[in-house]
Amino acid sequence: MISPDQVAEMLYPAAAATTSKPGPIPTVIPTPTHYQLSGETGHRTLWVLFALMTISSGVFALLSWNVPVSKRIYHVTTTLLSIVSALAYFAMAAGHASSLSCHAVRDRHSHDIPDTFHDSCRQIYWARYIDWAITTPLVLLNLCLLAGVDGAHTLMAVVANVIMVLGGLFAAYGAEGTAQKWGWFAISCVSYLFVLWHVGLHGTRAVQSKGARVSKLWASLAIYSLALWAAYPIVWGVAALARRTSVDTEILVYAVLDILVKPVFGLWLLVSHRAIAESNIDLGGYWSQGAAAEGRIRIGEED
């Protein structure tokens, strides 16, 4: 006896082929989370930078040994530069100053398999941004003091610099592909332009009254430091924003830039400042004697 299914296959072979039992539904195995973490090279680099910044702090402190307290402003700022950076690198090397910034990545498959998503997490050293928020204003302060920039423009430059650094920090943790990330990036870039405006323009005008030697020194230091600062957002964009480099490469590049901007800049400033008398800034009164001593002097003068 012929079954109904066999009759259908004989009369409508094409239809029988198309109405065959479906095969198994393709399965999709989710892609595991992808991590971008520092390795042995990056870890060693962080410890080396901690040692270099600590040694630099000691050198800058020794250079101020025979300098009167009223004329140690550059020695104090450069020493603080290195100390803060040393603490930041110690925190990063010890593993206490980083966190993961994660975002979802789409995995595209063939037409019959639906797309899937996996998380991509990159290690962000937030202590680096705290370091920059404290140390880069000290570099600006040195440039403004050397040029003789007024307090109003110096304060505006320092505030713009802090906004620039914090904008980079917020953008590094921003959601991928959102206006939030690029908005903070734009704010950071605009703040850098304000730094150039207040330091570059007003510094160029103010330093002319201090003579050719101070003007030449200031121009060299300003171009040197501001040009290096322009490299930071480029590295940040490639590493933290686009995530095109490894975390170890990011650490190495930032380490080179930090050495050039902090110990090299500080040593250049202190050695040149010692040889140019016109660059001296004598901060008497409270800076060298304290408020109580200044009060006693005023009473004595009135008597």
Rank of each mutant, 00 (worst) to 15 (best):
residue 25 I to K: 12
residue 75 H to P: 05
residue 51 A to Q: 07
residue 285 G to C: 06
residue 209 S to M: 10
residue 24 P to E: 15
residue 37 L to C: 02
residue 11 L to H: 06
residue 217 L to C: 07
residue 58 G to V: 07
residue 93 A to I: 01
residue 192 Y to V: 08
residue 33 T to M: 09
residue 258 D to T: 14
residue 134 I to F: 07
residue 116 T to F: 00
residue 128 R to D: 08
residue 22 P to F: 00
residue 30 P to I: 00
residue 30 P to V: 00
residue 258 D to P: 02
residue 303 D to T: 13
residue 301 E to M: 07
residue 32 P to N: 02
residue 208 Q to E: 13
residue 66 N to M: 13
residue 29 I to K: 00
residue 149 V to C: 07
residue 281 I to W: 03
residue 238 V to P: 03
residue 204 T to D: 09
residue 71 K to Q: 13
residue 220 S to W: 10
residue 245 T to P: 02
residue 19 T to E: 08
residue 159 V to H: 03
residue 3 S to L: 08
residue 89 Y to D: 05
residue 289 Q to L: 09
residue 30 P to A: 06
residue 137 P to C: 05
residue 279 S to H: 04
residue 248 D to S: 06
residue 256 V to K: 03
residue 69 V to I: 06
residue 111 H to D: 14
residue 190 V to I: 15
residue 167 G to D: 00
residue 226 L to G: 02
residue 46 L to F: 00
residue 36 Q to T: 09
residue 62 L to P: 08
residue 84 V to C: 07
residue 151 G to P: 00
residue 113 I to F: 10
residue 115 D to R: 05
residue 284 G to R: 12
residue 110 S to I: 14
residue 56 S to F: 01
residue 119 D to L: 15
residue 157 A to I: 02
residue 267 L to W: 15
residue 58 G to L: 04
residue 89 Y to E: 11
residue 69 V to K: 10
residue 211 G to L: 00
residue 294 E to S: 14
residue 224 Y to F: 15
residue 72 R to S: 09
residue 292 A to W: 14
residue 1 M to H: 10
residue 17 A to F: 09
residue 87 L to D: 02
residue 69 V to M: 11
residue 264 V to K: 04
residue 168 G to T: 05
residue 66 N to S: 15
residue 246 S to P: 01
residue 212 A to C: 08
residue 113 I to Y: 12
residue 71 K to A: 14
residue 76 V to R: 12
residue 32 P to L: 00
residue 32 P to T: 03
residue 202 H to V: 03
residue 135 T to C: 12
residue 55 I to N: 05
residue 176 E to L: 06
residue 145 L to I: 08
residue 70 S to M: 04
residue 221 L to S: 04
